[in-house]
């Protein structure tokens, strides 16, 4: 199910502003890759280029290649809508649809994309909510609005919504930055379980989190404000945090700058 991502020479722009430049990396299937780096270095922008959400921003455009198991996401005739069905995304702030119930939120991706039978739908919803470790908390109030849940529950609801459409890759943009430590722990445990089935890429500002959940870590940096962000290095998480090959990575991790 999970797919490999191969990025080569990727540069992304906002209008005429170059946000990230010449990024190449490989993300292995069924692994967790963490992106760390100072604010504004282009981690989120890069993440959004991986499911073509970058071009949703007015003026956003991309050069370079992103291969999803040998298929170029930016190739001719590729439909961004189909790309996003393969590569799901969880955002920084929990964003359940306010008009929909918990059930409808999870079913949204399926329902908005085609027709399903009611029984089929409730099976998938149950499976997804269980997958997001939320089932036990909400099974008695599936018809209540999703916005009534706590922040951590809402975020897990959003994860359930994202995995309900069975993507191959799951992108997470600082999924825990708006949550308390206990909800964060719940989501980190969940990430550990989800990597059995999905390729996971997570942006985080919390280096302990990157060390805890990821198999590989990529460090991004920018040389100066206004300059495009670059990938400094990507390596096994253990190596990055114990013995990085670039001095800047060590400085950042040990808190000597940024």
């Amino acid at each position: 199910m999970a797919k490999r991502i191969d990025v080569s020479g990727l540069t992304a722009y906002y209008g005429s502003h170059k946000a990230i430049e010449d990024i190449s990396m490989t993300v292995e299937p069924r692994s967790v890759t963490a992106f760390i780096g100072p604010s504004g270095c282009g981690k989120s922008t890069f993440l959004r280029t991986l499911n073509r959400m970058h071009e949703v921003t007015p003026g956003g455009r991309v050069e370079g290649k992103v291969l999803l198991d040998d298929e170029d996401l930016y190739g001719n005739g590729i439909d961004p809508v189909s790309v996003r069905r393969e590569v799901g995304m969880v955002f920084q702030r929990p964003n359940p649809f306010p008009t929909m119930s918990i059930f409808d939120n999870v079913a949204a991706g399926l329902r908005l994309n085609g027709s399903y039978r009611k029984s089929e739908l409730s099976d998938i919803v149950e499976k997804s909510l269980k997958g997001a470790n939320l089932w036990n908390e909400v099974k008695d109030r599936l018809n209540k609005p999703g916005s009534g849940l706590s922040g951590g529950q809402q975020q897990r609801l959003c994860i359930a919504r994202a995995i309900a459409v069975e993507p191959k890759v799951l992108l997470m943009d600082e999924p825990c930055s708006a949550l308390d430590p206990i909800s964060t722990l719940a989501i980190e445990d969940l990430i550990g379980e989800l990597k059995e089935r999905f390729t996971i890429v997570i942006v985080t500002h919390n280096m302990q989190q990157a060390a805890r959940v990821s198999d590989r870590t990529a460090f991004f940096n920018l040389s100066a404000v206004g300059q495009p962000g670059r990938l400094i290095e990507i390596d096994d998480t253990e190596r990055i945090f114990s013995n990085p090959s670039v001095q800047a990575t060590e400085d950042y991790i040990s808190g000597r700058f940024g």
Partner: peptide, 22 residues
């Protein structure tokens, strides 16, 4: 909020359905 549009688009929902349904 733009986040709702992005949430829907990221689920692979076409833009017109995002507007109609979300």
């Amino acid at each position: 909020p733009n986040e709702l549009r992005e949430a829907s688009l990221a689920l692979g929902v076409p833009k017109y359905r995002t507007i109609l349904k979300v």
